[in-house]
Design a protein around this nucleic acid. Structure first.
Lengths: 181, 181, 181, 181
DNA sequence: TATGAATGAGATTTCATTCAT
DNA sequence: AATGAATGAAATCTCATTCAT
């Protein structure tokens, strides 16, 4: 079952959710169709299980926002947090992406998705609010989260010629200035 | 053929690229399967035609970046440009989204995609460079483009509770501060 | 209409009857679908028209069997006739082949086919009968006709590495010996 | 899978290769479309499998040519061999026919075809050569093979009013005289 | 628990034929 | 007469899901 989940991530990563066939996942997990349906009702069910994992990771990440805020120390905290985000995204990126796309038939998963991302946004907005920056904290935080996710995606999918270090530097600079200056 | 292209946009918008069936498009265009295959080899072929349209729109948008830059006048220009981007995105958003996702089988389209978005990024980077902001202009511009695209998507897909005006205000503020302060 | 018939022959020759699309014929004839259906009810109808042509050719060929029979003069006659047959087959081979295959839906054409080939066989059988060879003249004649047709086909379709001259020499020898020795 | 192959033979025999729909084969095999595509990529793929079977049969038949040659004993051998050929043709005739027709898209099969028929021809040519008959052994053998195949076809498809016994008598007589007198 | 052959609903694709111009 | 865009019925093919072992 763990093997199936990991296979799911791998296959979603390389083919995307919709082109991923159960057959691909089953082969990657070196098991059989029968076994797949023993543990999951269908493809979306496996995906939901992955989403639950991601939700945990995101909750932990939200918890660990720390003293992100204005000033150099706040920027250092932000940088460290972006490192952790990148770690998480490297593994769960495909899941997050599918999750933010609405193409899924059952809205179930989609809704879960925004809720948890929303929680992260909420906490980030707290920091913006506390800093007194002249923006709508909610929306600015949302924009920042959107940017962070997309940038990670672009770098991982090599749609942008930058390595991880450059990505984090850039994000730290841009996000910090956008939210706390 | 125009009817099929428009139907394509509409169906991609409501169901997403992968769940869109040729049958849906054909019905939306009030025509027949035969006619569809008269003009397009398959669904992806129609999509490529849409991408060509989007490329034109994006090129025009790139052309019209204007005097975006530091200061209040630069912010006003940015705001106006974001309005134009939002207009374009309202129509072509689904195409852009599919385009930036790598799930497509033929890399053809994907490659075109980054090229044109890359062109927009390049021009925006010029403005950042000229402003002398303390960031890697290329990457900061990329981050900004990523944020703009995603935010538009979140608002249109109602994953974020904000109206168009709030979105543009926020983006103008955040982008301007991130790139030119 | 003549153009369509010739295009039909050409296309049947290169693709075979079943893979030949009306579209291929229409393009080869540099005309339109509409025009095709102005002259022919459907693909098989055009084919029947070709069959009628072939029937005429075969009737003429039957008429011209001449003094085929035992002895050297009979062999010379046979050789000359085989030349004429090869000429006809070079043009109408594809039609004859389709015709002898039963895959056509309407038996109409198929029946016509055997009738006319049957007439040729009948006349050839007369010669065999007259020669008093120790075989069933009907069947031996049929076998000879079958062999002649197939050999022409194999040579034209290059399934056998022989030129026309060698083919005719061989057929003359073999047929003459088989029927009149 | 065996059931599908047999169904293929049956359907090709009754409808011919081109009018045979996968649906027909599937129904004849009392199985489903899914199963068909589990074992074969498409109709031609199944056909290739049948061709492989036929190739085996033909190779065995080639092996068993025996002491075919001049004189009465050689004629008796020939007759026996023609019986075996007729047995084989009764089962695999449709496959052989499609095989010698070039209408197939992939040349793959066509080439296999002539190769194996070519082998039979080669061995028969050996016998002709040994007999010292005054013909090109290669081509005469080819002509004989062509005649045998066609005659079997005409009799089986009832395009000629003869029973199996008459057919074999005639072929034995004609072939023997053509190749060994 | 585990397997994988079998299924069939549903999607894609082709092409002979029609018909308004 | 001639055209060729449009049609849709019929074919091909895919893949999530089931079930006997």
């Amino acid at each position: 079952m763990r093997r199936l989940l990991d296979a799911g991530i791998a296959v979603f990563a390389s083919r995307g959710y919709h082109s991923a066939r159960v057959d691909d996942i089953v082969k990657a997990a070196k098991t059989s169709h029968g076994t797949f349906y023993l543990y999951f009702a269908n493809k979306e069910d496996l995906f939901q299980a992955l989403v639950a994992d991601v939700a945990d990771e995101l909750a932990a990440l939200t918890e660990s926002l720390g003293a992100i805020g204005p000033g150099d120390s706040g920027r250092v905290e932000l940088r460290a947090w972006l490192e952790r985000f990148a770690d998480m995204y490297e593994h769960y990126g495909p899941v997050i992406r599918t999750w933010t796309e609405t193409e899924l038939d059952s809205t179930e998963v989609g809704r879960m998705g925004t809720d948890v991302l929303g929680d992260l946004t909420l906490r980030l907005a707290d920091r913006v609010s506390a800093a007194g920056t002249d923006v709508n904290p909610q929306l600015a935080a949302m924009a920042a989260v959107a940017m962070i996710e997309r940038f990670n995606y672009f770098v991982l999918s090599r749609q942008v010629a930058a390595n991880r270090g450059e990505m984090i530097d850039t994000l730290a600079g841009v996000v910090h200035r956008a939210l706390f200056d």
